[in-house]
Amino acid sequence: MKTLKTMMLGLAMLALCGAVKANTNDNSKFTKNYAINTYIDAMTRGKLAGLNEVLDQSAAFNMVRGKQVLSFGKKQMLDYFQSNKNVEQQCTTSTTVVENNAGIAIVKVDMKFENFTRSNYVTIAHTANGWKITNVYSVFVS
């Protein structure tokens, strides 16, 4: 009987430890660099691994086209990225940090094509779930 109680206690402890470990969020990979590199991979190479995780649920995407501003949400952008999965853009990409502090970073991602440049101003915020992209504002320059 004592052996049975000991085994049951051991199994209960094992289940408890497993449940606690399952609820632990590993946000160590959600750094500023990871978020921006994941975004660049999606935009320029069509590589979508990790993109859904680095986009905040309320992420907003705005694009200036002429005199019009187009706005999109996370789902619309994920659908767009999915339709361009594994499509490599013929551009040169560079990044410039515009602002960087403990709570927020703004990174300018320039995609230089043959006849124009697309500049993406990417806002990354430090959330409870790591660094997440919260806003992208894109402008096109000839």
Score class of each variant (00 low, 15 high):
Thr6Gly: 10
Met7Val: 15
Met7Cys: 11
Met8Thr: 13
Met8Asn: 09
Met8Tyr: 06
Leu9Tyr: 08
Leu9Asp: 12
Leu11Thr: 03
Ala12Arg: 07
Ala12Phe: 05
Ala12Gln: 06
Met13Pro: 00
Met13Gly: 12
Leu14Gly: 07
Leu14Ile: 11
Ala15Met: 08
Leu16Val: 12
Cys17Pro: 04
Gly18Ser: 09
Ala19Pro: 12
Ala19Leu: 14
Lys21Ser: 15
Ala22Arg: 06
Asn23Ala: 09
Thr24Asp: 14
Asp26Met: 08
Asn27Ser: 08
Ser28Lys: 14
Ser28Trp: 11
Ser28Pro: 08
Lys29Gln: 15
Lys29Glu: 11
Phe30Tyr: 03
Thr31Cys: 02
Lys32Trp: 02
Asn33Gln: 13
Asn33Thr: 15
Tyr34Glu: 05
Tyr34Arg: 03
Ala35Asn: 01
Asn37Cys: 06
Asn37Met: 02
Thr38Tyr: 01
Tyr39Lys: 02
Ile40Thr: 06
Asp41Val: 05
Asp41Ile: 01
Asp41Thr: 08
Ala42Asn: 01
Ala42Trp: 07
Met43Trp: 00
Thr44Ala: 14
Thr44Gln: 07
Thr44Arg: 02
Lys47Trp: 01
Lys47Leu: 06
Leu48Lys: 02
Leu48Trp: 03
Ala49Gly: 13
Leu51Gly: 08
Asn52Trp: 07
Asn52Thr: 09
Glu53Gly: 04
Glu53Asp: 15
Val54Pro: 00
Leu55Ile: 09
Gln57Phe: 09
Gln57Asp: 13
Ser58His: 11
Ala59Asp: 00
Ala60Phe: 03
Ala60Trp: 05
Phe61His: 00
Asn62Met: 15
Met63Pro: 08
Val64Glu: 05
Arg65Gly: 08
Arg65Leu: 15
Lys67Ser: 10
Val69Ser: 04
Leu70His: 07
Leu70Ser: 05
Ser71Gln: 11
Phe72Ser: 01
Phe72Asn: 03
Gly73Lys: 10
Gly73Arg: 05
Lys74Val: 06
Lys75Thr: 13
Lys75Ile: 13
Gln76Ile: 00
Gln76Leu: 06
Leu78His: 03
Asp79Gly: 06
Asp79Met: 00
Tyr80Trp: 14
Gln82Lys: 15
Gln82Thr: 10
Ser83Asp: 04
Ser83His: 01
Ser83Arg: 12
Ser83Val: 04
Ser83Asn: 07
Asn84Gly: 07
Asn86Ser: 11
Glu88Gly: 00
Glu88Asn: 10
Gln89Asn: 11
Gln90Asp: 12
Gln90Ile: 04
Gln90Asn: 15
Cys91Asn: 09
Cys91Tyr: 03
Thr92Met: 10
Thr92Trp: 09
Ser94Trp: 05
Thr96Ser: 11
Val97His: 00
Val97Gln: 00
Val98Tyr: 05
Glu99Thr: 11
Asn101Ile: 04
Gly103Met: 08
Ala105Met: 07
Ala105Leu: 05
Ala105Cys: 00
Ala105Gly: 08
Ile106Gln: 02
